[in-house]
Design a protein around this nucleic acid. Sequence first.
DNA 1: CTCTTACGCTACGAGCCGTAGCGTAACTGC
DNA 2: GCAGTTACGCTACGGCTCGTAGCGTAAGAG
Lengths: 236, 236
Amino acid sequence: MIWLIPGVLPGGKVAFMTSAPPPTHRTGGGRTGRPRSADADRAILAATREALVELGWSKLTMGDVAARAGVAKTTLYRRWAGKSELVVDAVAALFDEHLELPDRGSLGADVEGVVLQFAALLERPETKTALMAVVAESTRDDALRDRIRSAIVDRQKTLVLVGRERAQARGELPAEPDASAAARNADLIFDVIAGAVVHRTLVSAEPVDAEWARAFTALLVGGLTAAAAGYTDPAA
Amino acid sequence: MIWLIPGVLPGGKVAFMTSAPPPTHRTGGGRTGRPRSADADRAILAATREALVELGWSKLTMGDVAARAGVAKTTLYRRWAGKSELVVDAVAALFDEHLELPDRGSLGADVEGVVLQFAALLERPETKTALMAVVAESTRDDALRDRIRSAIVDRQKTLVLVGRERAQARGELPAEPDASAAARNADLIFDVIAGAVVHRTLVSAEPVDAEWARAFTALLVGGLTAAAAGYTDPAA
DNA sequence: CTCTTACGCTACGAGCCGTAGCGTAACTGC
DNA sequence: GCAGTTACGCTACGGCTCGTAGCGTAAGAG
């Protein structure tokens, strides 16, 4: 059983948090009783990020976070089902704050921008140690997977959609024939960009610098324009 | 301090395992004393894979694996420093067995083949739950990172190098100007392929089917040939 | 037959988990 | 104000996992 409760993240934006029991997380209106402390939320999430930097994912404990935040351990468990859920919300706030896509004038420049931005986010020790861990956890927890998707992944995917729209408006890319093909294509591009940056940063453990971003962008944009020109396997 | 000890994996191939104390892991010749049981090695690694399938990474414990393998818990700790190291060796054996690159006649066909092969490996519950977890762990453990690299990542990268060599022999791709550029390029392609497949499988949680593999291959090969034709950002 | 190393077993302190129980604090509606 | 309701802090707890120590035994090397 999963409850979806609208909650307010540090950025002031509304997100959805899944909690264990029915935690009635409202901010302004409604029910009776003592309301949950928004200060506690902020303190807990900030403490979580701090603990991630100092201890990393595996050595981070709920008790430690509670102590840092100055709240009781039970308060954490009243709001989050466990470490994974807590950490997802804690790092999701960073994605909220640091992802944007200013128009840089060309498809290539836009791609390069988003690559560097995403890479900068992944270079942070909080995200570096947390992201793969929660993804690993999500392979056995569908609710957690949905939480990651809505709190983190979808925010990145938006950038791809915006970038493609701009490129089409500029005439750099053709319009998609139908909606489902467009969606498949966007998913593909998203997996390629996000996957390459993540793999470079976390598996190969080498920096996404300007040079790499340029080479990657050339490869991707080349592929996109080639595909637009009707490329198929020459051996087929 | 790290020791590198040649050991024999299930496939019969020789791999390198890092153990905590000086465990003198020899098979045929050398020192005095009772030799380590190769049967125990096989049983432990098989038990680890079995436990990964049933329990997943987070609920797998050293005690459980020892019980399944029919050995004492202390024996595990005599050979592996902890859960991460053990799991890396356990899944590395799968990569040894299931990665190969038959010549399919064209660059596109080779890419598609390796994508599907890698995806099939990632669809297994053992690898699915383990790979991201150990990568996450490795962000705070350099020795573990090296172990992952030599036991898993380098085996995949070899396929990229073989594929490129073939493509160059076929005339599908030009020869590289210098060695360092060639290495950078191979790293880029590797991060793109492995990253996209991993991201698609584990983050987007959608299958790498024939259709996706074809679309991805078209994108990548298109980018490679475009780059070979001297593509640069048209807005630059 | 001795030396050396690996193994199985038991036992242990330490740490974290997640929850129960209780008294208190904060806010709502009457 | 006052009752009703919900959140909070605190304490305590059983249960589990960790990683190690100690000891007697098993298996090869010389």
